[in-house]
């Protein structure tokens, strides 16, 4: 199963888990699957219109995905690794 790497700032929703296994699908379905196991994760990842939050960046197998409307539709295979980075720092 593919693995979603959770940003450290969001691990309060996953009880500290750094990685979550999810069924293969798309970036969107992978994040939705994490959300089912992690209350609060959905709001951190999706806005009210269902788009990904602007503070997120996605890497598929260590390659950054191009930002745009199609990002969430990128397919994720059985052995893939999706890393989610969140811009949460600074003052």
């Amino acid at each position: 199963m593919p693995i979603v790497v959770i940003p450290t700032a969001f691990r309060g929703t996953t009880n500290g888990a750094a990685e979550v296994e999810v069924p293969a699908g798309t970036i969107r379905s992978c994040l939705e699957s994490v959300s089912e196991q992690a209350p609060g994760f959905h709001e951190l990842c999706f806005d009210k219109a269902g788009n990904n939050q602007r503070w997120l960046k996605f890497f598929l197998n260590e390659v950054q995905l191009e930002e745009g409307p199609g990002t969430l539709d990128v397919e994720v295979g059985e052995n893939d690794r999706v890393e989610v980075l969140a811009a949460v720092a600074g003052g």
């Binding site: 700032a9 309060g12 609060g40 709001e43 951190l44 939050q53 602007r54 503070w55 960046k57 890497f59 950054q64 980075l85 969140a86 811009a87 949460v88 720092a89 600074g90 003052g91």
Partner: peptide, 20 residues
């Protein structure tokens, strides 16, 4: 070539900080 996480400035952190 990396994610440039600070590109939008620190003010953009507001909503996620609020959620946390």
């Amino acid at each position: 070539e990396g994610p440039q996480m600070m590109k939008s400035g620190t003010a953009s952190v507001v909503p996620v900080a609020n959620m946390l």
